[in-house]
């Protein structure tokens, strides 16, 4: 049993999510329906996309402290420009993705600490967002709203989207050649470089992918909330890091799992819903979320330690 867990790292995130889901259904059997599931995982799609963005950065051994501000900025662009002048809006979003790629290249070329550069960029993104949308407002484009509230048969939109996103990223990062090289940059950038790969371009690609997923997260968020403000997603920075780690990722060595990251994000989203079913005093909801985080990570530790002993 334990050997099973150590061999398949993905099992632990799956089991944690299943346990939490089981507990939620036990507390509130009515959640066990199409509509209930949709409510439970409603906000999970943007969190999952943001977690994947963070995962791209953690994959190359860096960490992104600007992600929350970036997603907020994208949300502001989506709710203003993308709605009023779709072409200009798309252009802005494209520039933002390229800016992320450039950030990755600069960090690598000048050998800067990513944690500090992204910290500085979080001010830049936040400032631009505040400039675009000084007070909460804006309108979600209709097509985006329709896309996020679509009702597919059998499975709710949030679950279907999560599965689709996880499958696509899994193919890209775990199965494709370029994904393997990207993970190799996290494992040992120097040997990837010696093998003839342009590490600068790879790092830019990883950051560009992060920017792309960040853009998708911001758009998904606006599709759900229908309006935006400059601080709408600031908590995504820490949430996304937690999601990657919950999903079995590690801070170094390119050890990440896209499927795990999506499951980690779903777990975080579900934890919030679960706690509200628990009729816990609102005072303790945040704290209980922290406790769940600690619990899951402790469980993981039990298995990894056995692994080390074996």
């Amino acid at each position: 049993m334990i050997r099973l867990f150590t061999r398949y790292r993905i099992l632990l995130p799956v089991v944690s999510l299943a346990l939490l889901l089981g507990a939620t259904f036990y507390m509130q059997p009515r959640a066990m329906s199409y509509f209930g599931l949709n409510l439970l995982f409603n906000l999970a799609v943007p969190i999952a996309l943001a977690t994947l963005a963070q995962m791209m950065i953690i994959m190359v051994n860096d960490i992104d402290l600007s992600l929350g501000a970036f997603v907020s900025l994208v949300a502001c662009v989506t709710a203003t420009w993308l709605n009023d002048a779709p072409l200009v809006g798309l252009l802005i979003l494209l520039v933002l993705v390229l800016a992320y790629a450039a950030m990755g290249a600069v960090i690598h070329m000048l050998d800067l600490p990513a944690i500090v550069v992204t910290l500085g960029m979080s001010f830049v993104w936040g400032g631009i967002a505040l400039f675009l949308l000084p007070s909460p407002g804006g309108v979600s484009p209709d097509w985006l709203r329709a896309l996020m509230t679509i009702k597919p048969p059998f499975v709710p939109m949030a679950v279907a989207a999560a599965v689709l996103i996880a499958a696509l990223t899994h193919l890209l990062i775990m199965r494709s050649g370029i994904g393997t090289v990207l993970r190799g940059v996290g494992g040992n950038a120097r040997s990837v470089g010696r093998a003839g790969w342009p590490v600068v371009r790879l790092k830019a690609l990883a950051y560009g992918l992060a920017g792309l997923f960040g853009v998708l997260a911001g758009m998904a968020l606006v599709g759900l909330t229908t309006s935006a403000d400059a601080n709408i997603a600031l908590r995504y920075t820490l949430l996304s890091v937690a999601g990657v780690i919950l999903g079995g990722g590690e801070f170094t060595g390119g050890k990440i799992s896209p499927v795990g990251a999506v499951i980690g994000a779903l777990t975080l989203a579900l934890a919030a819903s679960f706690l509200s079913f628990l009729r816990l005093s609102p005072d303790w909801q945040v704290g209980a979320q922290g406790a769940i985080l600690i619990l899951v990570l402790t469980a993981r530790l039990l298995f990894t330690r056995r692994d080390a002993q074996a």
Binding site: A242, V286, G287, A288, G290, L293
Partner: peptide, 22 residues
């Protein structure tokens, strides 16, 4: 628990925040 400090202090801060709110 051998947690990475980033995650450990992040999770713990949520608990402290709750105690402060309470």
């Amino acid at each position: 628990l051998r947690l990475p400090p980033i995650i450990a202090t992040l999770a713990a801060s949520l608990v402290y925040q709750s105690i402060a709110i309470w």
